[in-house]
């Protein structure tokens, strides 16, 4: 890896993505869904950053906002490269184009990620043309190489999506993202829709590709078992905000946020010796249209007090723990490490 490059490949500063809710005859904006509501996050070059949370916590929207597939409404998305720092939000479509090859995305649903109407090559040819991969033979060779990189036979590029299994489709999705030789890949639940025996294949493939190509991953998932195995650092999201972020071992070893603790304890573990006591959270995730005041987690939190209801906690390091273990909880110092036993 290049030593001259800044340590952080990507920095999000106060990123917000609010979807307008329109109502009335004139389709005016009456309210908004606060899918991502003020996220500060730095992604280090070469790491796997896990982004976990339940459905509706904004993790997918956050991933899509980084690639401008979802329109963020405030904040900065700063991407660092040899050309210095640039805020992707400020770029025009044309200015953004050179960065498209540096940031890519892998999707969740292997059934909707490939166009059923075309063969893989036909569907993908427009992309290869757009990035100037030479004549047809050259472009076919490029896609063939990519197929080999994801352990698929070259000649499969002329097949239709329905001829592939879920795991194969997911590998094609990975090959597609690799086509432009990206530096950062947002993996949006890449294994969630796959069968258990196929998940491991895809995870291993992603691991190998990262080593071979010096990739950085933002790995979005709801499956904490996978993040523990796969990610260097983990950020836990709840209702559009990050509540805790730390190294993988830290998150699981010295859990500081009550939500993280509940989330971990709720995971069914395929190990008879590790049956943990479940902490069953009352109620459901509140609506992101009108999140609760103060700490958004307080209505479901066992430890909530008045301050939690009134003030929004800041995501910050806590004095007894490593500097890069950030947590957004008012009571972190009193509560200390929350166990899972």
């Amino acid at each position: 890896m290049n030593d001259q490059l800044p340590e952080n490949i990507l920095e999000l500063r106060g990123l917000k993505t609010h979807y307008p809710i329109r109502g009335g005859v004139f389709r005016r904006t009456v309210d908004s869904i606060k899918a991502v509501d003020g996220v500060d996050l730095s992604v280090r070059r070469g790491e796997v950053l896990g982004l976990v949370g339940e459905s509706g916590c904004g993790k997918s929207t956050l991933g899509k906002s980084i690639l401008r597939l979802a329109l963020s409404t405030a904040g900065e998305i700063v991407f660092s490269s040899e050309n210095g720092e640039v805020d992707l939000r400020q770029l025009t479509r044309a200015e953004l184009f050179p960065y498209r090859r540096r940031l890519q995305i892998i999707f969740q649903d292997p059934h909707s990620s490939l166009n059923p109407a075309f063969t893989i090559f036909t569907a993908f040819d427009d992309v290869l043309k757009r990035y100037g991969y030479g004549d047809k033979e050259a472009r076919r060779a490029v896609l063939g190489d990519l197929f080999e990189a994801v352990n698929m036979p070259r000649h499969y590029i002329d097949r239709y999506p329905h001829e592939f299994s879920g795991g194969q489709r997911q590998r094609i999705g990975i090959a597609r993202a690799l086509a432009v030789d990206p530096e950062l890949i947002v993996c949006d639940e890449p294994v969630s829709a796959l069968d258990a025996s196929i998940q491991a294949q895809v995870l291993k493939l992603l691991q190998n590709l990262r080593q071979e190509r010096n990739l950085t991953y933002i790995f979005i998932t709801h499956d904490l078992s996978v993040t523990e195995y796969f990610c260097d650092r983990i950020a836990v999201m709840y209702l559009g905000k990050i509540v805790e972020i730390a190294k993988s071992e830290e998150i699981f070893g010295t859990t500081l946020h009550p939500y993280t603790q509940a989330l971990i304890s709720a995971i069914p573990v395929a190990d008879l010796d590790r049956k943990s006591k479940r902490i069953v959270l009352e109620g459901d995730v509140p609506s992101p249209v009108s999140p609760p005041s103060g700490c958004a987690f307080h209505p479901r939190c066992r430890f909530a007090t008045d301050i939690c209801r009134q003030q929004t906690p800041k995501l910050q390091p806590s004095k007894d723990y490593p500097k890069d273990h950030l947590v957004a909880c008012h009571r972190v110092e009193e509560l200390g490490v929350l166990g899972h036993a």
Binding site: S165, S197, A200, L203, K204, S225, E228, F230, S248, R274
Partner: peptide, 23 residues
Amino acid sequence: LLASIPVLGRGRNQQIEPIRGST
């Protein structure tokens, strides 16, 4: 199947072994 799934609590260095091929 049991060897192919990451198990929570076994940490970053657990070994998982994919099942080759597909159903």
